[in-house]
Design a protein around this nucleic acid. Sequence first.
DNA 1: ACTGGATCCTGACAGC
DNA 2: TGCTGTCAGGATCCAG
Length: 270
Amino acid sequence: MPELPEVETVARTLAPALVGRRVVAVRVRERRLRGGVARSFAARLEGRRLEAVTRRGKYMVVGLDDGRLWLVHLGMTGQLTLAPSDRTARRHDHVVIELDDGRLVTYNDPRRFGRMAVIDATALAAETGAGVDPLDDAFTPETLFALTRARRTPIKALLMDQRRVAGLGNIYTNEILFRAGVRPGRRAARLAREECRRIVAASHLVLAEAIRRGGSSISDYRDGLGREGWFQLDHCVYDRAGEPCPGCRTPIRARVLVGRSTFYCPRCQR
DNA sequence: ACTGGATCCTGACAGC
DNA sequence: TGCTGTCAGGATCCAG
């Protein structure tokens, strides 16, 4: 679920409550998240002051006063939410962090595909992947064009590959390719410069609007304060098989591409 | 080096 | 109602 706009929304909603606060206690109730929660996790976070809340790709990154970074990845069903001190533990509350004002930051994740770690700042690129963030200035038509050269893989798979582009997942690649008028199955290497330009422009448009709407809530997603997002109401193609294309009324088509549900308008996208 | 499929896990939903 | 099968926003590992 949580792709760039959702992680950005969580980071923005948590930032005011986190920045400047000190961590008083960390309770790890379940270590079996992706890669496992390290033995040292709680000790590395306890006593630290939280300095900045940012995002890199699909990771939320919190700077600590000792120079290390607290990383959170929400996987498919992760929720990182602020709660009052008297919150009763719920099923799948795997990590609970107590702040010096008494409030709790709770990580809840039924499927446990998420990740939680404290790392050295120098390891950030290695830990989160080196892909270019679509909201970074470096994500230009020329960059994307270069990334696509000599790639036989479908453009949708390339956009979802975090080593190339970091932050896009299944919802937003479907939506971006629709707005760009490019079929998801097109071989990356065969895209023209003009099509790369449209994909970059569509990325900016779709992601900005999704962030403005607080992300997409399909079932689990909630922001840092437990609120749903509303961008799912603006989805043009994702999970809309058979519905009329907003541009030309042709029924939206669904197919599986590299193992993921893929939606597109057979008329508007070429 | 690349590419696509299987895999991890739980919960929601459809169909019988 | 209750069972079984399918599918889900992600990332990684492995075989070809």
